[in-house]
Amino acid sequence: MPSETPQAEVGPTGCPHRSGPHSAKGSLEKGSPEDKEAKEPLWIRPDAPSRCTWQLGRPASESPHHHTAPAKSPKILPDILKKIGDTPMVRINKIGKKFGLKCELLAKCEFFNAGGSVKDRISLRMIEDAERDGTLKPGDTIIEPTSGNTGIGLALAAAVRGYRCIIVMPEKMSSEKVDVLRALGAEIVRTPTNARFDSPESHVGVAWRLKNEIPNSHILDQYRNASNPLAHYDTTADEILQQCDGKLDMLVASVGTGGTITGIARKLKEKCPGCRIIGVDPEGSILAEPEELNQTEQTTYEVEGIGYDFIPTVLDRTVVDKWFKSNDEEAFTFARMLIAQEGLLCGGSAGSTVAVAVKAAQELQEGQRCVVILPDSVRNYMTKFLSDRWMLQKGFLKEEDLTEKKPWWWHLRVQELGLSAPLTVLPTITCGHTIEILREKGFDQAPVVDEAGVILGMVTLGNMLSSLLAGKVQPSDQVGKVIYKQFKQIRLTDTLGRLSHILEMDHFALVV
C-alpha cells in the first residue's frame, strides 16, 4: 500500500459497493488471473465517493441489488447463522422517566444476534452475496479491517462455511474481542490505534497488504460494500417497522461504517417519512454534520465500534436529520445504567446512543415513540467499562463513588512517597548505550525526554532486548525507535489509591 493515498477510480455505471474482489474501477472485475494482476490496485480507499443510485421515491424494481426479506425461524435451526436477525424490541421503562421523557422509549437489542452484535447481519450478508456472485469459493481466505464486531461476525460465518479468516484490528480494541476471535479460529493482526486510516500501518493498510500477498484472499470491505446497508434496509428496518406496527417518530443510532443508519433510515424514509433520524458520533470522530460539531482538541476516545477519521463510502449522511456528539463518560455511564436499571447487557456504544436519545427525544410528546439501536453486548468489555477499576483509572468514576473498604494508605498523596527525580535518556542515544546505562543503574525503564525536557515516551529494558533479539533494531539504532509513546501519567497530588489502580493494569506510571 502506498504512503500517498491515490484516488480510487470510478467506473461508468453500476453501484460502487459490489461485493467481491475490487477492480481499479471499484466494481467486480472478471477475466484471467493475468488481467486481474495487471488491473487490481494495491488498495482502494474506504472513503471513495459513493456511486449508489438510491433515491427517495425511486421504484424498488430499479435497484441493481439482490434483495432479501426477513424469514421466520424454524423450530430447529440448521446452523447458528440462522440465529442472525429477528432481534427483540424491548421497552426501556426507567431511564426515559428518569430523564423526563414523555414518549415511549424502545430498544432494538442487536446483541441477541448469534455473534453478539449488529455486525453479524452485514457479515453474513457480505459472505452470502460474495458466494452468490462467485467471488468467494471453498478454501478462500477472508481478510477484514475491523474494530472487532464485524470480525467476530465474519469469523463466526467463516467457521460454519469453512473459510480461512484473518482479522486486522487496532490495538485499542478489547482483549475479549481478541479472545472470541481466536476461539472462532480467526487469525488476528493488531495495528497502532493512532495510525491514520490511509497510513500503511493502519488496520485498513495492513489488511490490503495481506490481501496482495495471500492468494485467493478477499477483503469484503464493510466500508464500501453495498451488502452492509442492504442488510439493514432489507431486514433490520423491516423488523423495526413490523415490531412497531409502522408507528415510530424517531430513530437514534450510533454511527461507525454508517451501514446501520443508512440502511434503516432509507427504508424508514420510504415507509415512515415523518420519522426523524438521529445520528450519534463520538467526540474525536469526524462523521457528524455540520462540520463545526467535529471541532475539538480530542483525537482519541475509548468507546469502541463507532466514529472514524474518514467518511466511509457506505455512509449516506443525507438521510440523517440531526447529529449529536457523545463523550466517553456519558457513554459508559449510560451503558452501566442500562445494565443495572433495565437488565440490558449492552456495550458502550449503546450507552452513547441512549445518552443522546434522552436529549433528542425531549421534543417528542406522549403517545409518540423513539427507537434506539443497541449494537453489541457487554461480553466484549468485561475488563473495560464493566470494571470499576478501569473506570477509575480512566477518570470516568471517582473514588467516592465506590463504597468498598480501602487499605490505610489509600488516600495518601503520591508526594508522600518522597520520590527522587528519575533517570532520563535522550532519544538520540543508541539502544546499546541505553541498555548499558539501565543495567549500570539497576533500572528496568526510563523516560525519554528531548533537550527541552519534554517527555516523549518510555523505554524499557525488556522491550529493547526483545527488539534486538527479533532483529527489529540494532544496538547502533537510536533509542527513539523503541519508545512507548502511550503511558499513564500521575500527579504528586493524586492518591496512592489512584496509582494502585493504574499499576494493576500497566507496568509503570510516570509522575509529573
Rank of each mutant, 00 (worst) to 15 (best):
P2T: 10
P2A: 11
E4L: 08
T5A: 01
E9A: 13
V10R: 07
G11I: 01
G11D: 01
T13Y: 01
H17R: 06
S19W: 14
P21I: 04
P21D: 13
H22F: 12
A24M: 08
S27C: 14
S27G: 11
L28K: 06
G31K: 15
S32Y: 09
P33D: 08
E34V: 09
E37Q: 06
E40C: 01
L42I: 14
W43D: 01
R45T: 04
R45S: 13
R45W: 08
R45L: 14
R45F: 05
A48E: 01
P49C: 10
P49H: 15
R51S: 15
L56S: 07
S61C: 12
E62G: 15
S63G: 07
H65R: 01
H66Q: 15
T68V: 10
P70H: 08
I76A: 06
L77Q: 15
P78H: 15
D79T: 13
D79C: 11
L81C: 15
K83T: 09
V90P: 01
R91C: 01
N93V: 01
K94W: 10
K98Y: 01
K98N: 09
F99G: 12
L101E: 01
E104F: 04
L105F: 11
L106I: 10
C109V: 15
F112Y: 04
A114F: 06
S117N: 14
V118T: 11
V118A: 15
D120A: 13
S123V: 04
R125E: 14
I127L: 09
D129E: 14
D129V: 09
A130M: 01
T135M: 10
T135Y: 14
L136R: 01
K137S: 01
P138E: 07
P138D: 01
P138G: 09
T141V: 11
I142W: 01
I143A: 03
S147H: 06
G148T: 12
N149M: 01
G153L: 01
L154I: 05
L156Y: 04
A157Y: 09
A159W: 01
V160R: 13
R161G: 11
G162C: 03
R164L: 07
C165R: 01
I166G: 03
M169Q: 12
P170H: 01
P170G: 04
S174C: 04
S174R: 01
S174V: 01
S175C: 08
S175V: 09
E176R: 01
L184E: 04
G185C: 01
E187A: 01
R190G: 04
T191Y: 04
P192W: 01
S199M: 01
S199T: 06
P200Y: 13
P200T: 08
P200H: 13
H203M: 07
V204C: 15
V204S: 05
G205H: 05
G205V: 05
V206T: 05
V206D: 01
A207Q: 01
A207D: 05
A207N: 01
W208V: 08
W208M: 10
K211F: 08
N212M: 07
E213V: 09
E213K: 10
I214L: 07
P215N: 01
P215Y: 08
H218R: 11
H218D: 01
L220T: 04
R224D: 04
A226G: 07
N228S: 06
N228C: 06
P229F: 05
P229L: 08
L230G: 01
H232P: 01
Y233N: 08
Y233Q: 01
D234C: 01
D234G: 08
D234F: 07
T235V: 06
T235G: 09
T236V: 01
A237I: 01
D238C: 07
E239S: 07
I240Y: 06
D245G: 14
G246F: 04
G246I: 06
K247C: 15
L248Y: 01
D249K: 12
A253T: 13
V255F: 01
G256W: 01
G258V: 01
T260E: 01
I261P: 01
T262C: 08
G263P: 04
K267W: 08
E270I: 01
K271H: 14
P273N: 05
P273S: 10
C275G: 06
